[in-house]
Amino acid sequence: MNLTLRVWRQKNAHTPGEFREYEATGIVPDMSFLEMLDVVNEGLIARGGEPIAFDSDCREGICGTCSLVINGIPHGGQRGTTACQLHMRHFKDGDRITIEPWRARAFPVLRDLVVDRSPFDRIVQSGGFVSVNTGQAVDANCLPVPKDDSDLAMDAAQCIGCGACVAACKNASAMLFVAAKVSHLNLLPQGKAEKDRRALNMVKAMDEAGFGNCSVTGSCEAVCPKEISLDFIARMNRDYAAALLKGKFHAKAQAAGG
């Protein structure tokens, strides 16, 4: 099939970008969306042009590197699917497809469709871990974890950190990403000791990185390739509120000379 692509081209973070049109010819239904872009790029290089820069790595939906807004929807709108796993059989001959990078103030464009998602790393650095050094662990089975808790933690832990939630949100909020990590660790007994600090620190880091607030539209959940539930945001809000309250008590105790 033959398609017309409208692609965002931008030289670097400091130069304004623009949409340009490309014809994609000879596309077959078994190609993934990124393989279709590979074909377009091969053609561009052959004609002496610069290929469209886009991020991808594992191409099997787990590394979270690919980051395309396709026809206005991050990852293209197939439920639970990353752009690399989106196949051309979902498009029709003659389709006109618009391809943009993640758009969010906290994710500046580096080139074309490539953005800088390092704020996600900084959020994790602020508290998305259990403080346990190598060698300090006790036997893995000495602390039973109810299967339901473990399964729910796994639902949250599945997040691939792609940033589609931010790209879909009209406020460019990172709440789903942060809530997934806070919930994953706060649900497990191993993460309990740092539960309050984690919620407070990660939310603070998120705010400092320039992400917007959550107004619970649910667009993040709708585009999440791992279908991470909005419920985790509610769960994080509860952990956050509890931590704030407990923090107030600590402060009083200290003021009283405790």
Binding site: T134, A137, L143, K147, S150
Partner: peptide, 17 residues
């Protein structure tokens, strides 16, 4: 042991092990 302590959510049986 190390991974479980880090919070890796390995599959578990109903008894929690």
């Amino acid at each position: 042991d190390q991974c479980v302590a880090q919070g890796v959510p390995f599959a578990r049986e109903y008894g929690g092990l």
